[in-house]
């Protein structure tokens, strides 16, 4: 199993969630984060004070998946989160040592459902 960490634009979050839902990826954690991915700074003005907003609001998704789901998940996020401009985000795929489902005590592959993607 793997842990997929994806950082995406907040305005693309709904598209990503929809794509993940269609790909039958269930279970994820989302957090609002601030980040910078090389995009041009936004300039704002507040009563004579000009500021460059160096950090942009982003959404960070963490998804634990079984091996057959890695490609499916990555493909769903790539397709849904892309606008083609700098600042679309990143996807990291990490090895995971153990996974435990707290409710049942199941571990590893059994703790990330489902194990077989649709159409495989």
């Amino acid at each position: 199993m793997k842990l997929i960490i994806a950082t995406v634009r907040p305005d693309k979050l709904n598209d990503v969630l929809e794509a993940l839902y269609r790909a039958e990826v269930r279970g994820l954690t989302a957090s609002r984060v601030m980040g910078h991915g090389g995009e041009v700074e936004r300039v704002e003005n507040y009563r004579g004070t000009t500021v460059k907003m160096g950090l942009q609001e982003k959404v960070r998704l963490e998804i634990g998946v079984s091996e057959p789901f890695v490609d499916v998940t990555v493909k769903a996020i790539l397709g849904a989160a892309r606008t083609g401009e700098v600042g679309d985000g990143k996807i990291f795929v990490l090895d995971v040592e153990q996974v435990h489902r707290i409710r049942t005590g199941e571990r590893d592959e059994a703790a990330v459902t489902p194990t077989i993607p649709a159409g495989v």
Binding site: D11, M34, V43, E44, T49, K52, M53, G54
Partner: peptide, 25 residues
Amino acid sequence: GLGMDVTQHGEEAYSTGEGSILVLP
């Protein structure tokens, strides 16, 4: 998608100021 505040007015209603860099005159 970005929102009309930033794009039309160059301001945010609930800016935290995190990561903002002061631009000197």
